[in-house]
Simulated scan of single mutants.
Amino acid sequence: LPADELREKITDKTKLLVLPYPKNPTGAIMRREDLEEIAQVLKDTNIIIASDEIYSELTYSGKHCSIAEIEGMRERTIVINGFSKSFAMTGWRLGFLGGPKEIVSQMLKLHQYAIMSSPTVSQYAAIVAMHSCQKDIDTMRNEYNIRRRFVVDAFNKLGLKCFAPQGAFYVFPCIKDTGMKSADFCEKLVYTKKVAVVPGDAFGECGEGYVRVSYAYSLNHLREAIKRIGEFLEDIRNGNVQ
Rank of each mutant, 00 (worst) to 15 (best):
I29H: 02
I229Q: 04
P173R: 01
C162K: 00
V195C: 06
E224N: 03
S105K: 10
L233D: 04
G209D: 12
C133V: 03
S132Q: 06
N24Q: 05
R7S: 06
D52P: 00
A126P: 00
M180S: 03
V128I: 03
L42Y: 03
W92S: 09
N142K: 12
V128T: 05
P199Y: 13
N238L: 13
F155V: 15
E33Y: 03
T90S: 11
K157R: 08
G95D: 02
P165C: 07
G167Q: 12
L58Y: 13
V198L: 10
G167L: 13
V197T: 11
A154F: 13
D184H: 10
G167H: 06
K194W: 01
M89Q: 06
I146Q: 14
S218I: 02
I146E: 15
Y217R: 15
E208I: 10
P119I: 14
L42G: 07
R237A: 11
R228G: 15
F169C: 01
L108C: 04
R76K: 10
H64L: 11
V213I: 14
G239T: 10
D12E: 12
A68V: 14
M73G: 05
A183S: 15
Y113G: 12
I29L: 05
S105G: 01
Y170K: 03
S214L: 01
Y170L: 13
M180R: 08
I78P: 00
G239L: 09
K109Q: 14
R93N: 08
Y210G: 00
D44C: 04
S132C: 04
G72I: 12
L108M: 12
D4P: 06
H131I: 06
D138M: 03
I54W: 07
T11S: 13
G82I: 03
D34Q: 11
R32F: 02
E37A: 11
R31E: 10
E71G: 13
T45P: 08
K43D: 09
K101S: 03
P2N: 09
E8P: 01
Y124A: 04
K15A: 14
I146S: 14
M180C: 03
S132R: 06
I127W: 08
V211T: 06
V128R: 04
L160R: 00
E5L: 13
V18Y: 04
F169T: 04
G99K: 06
R93S: 07
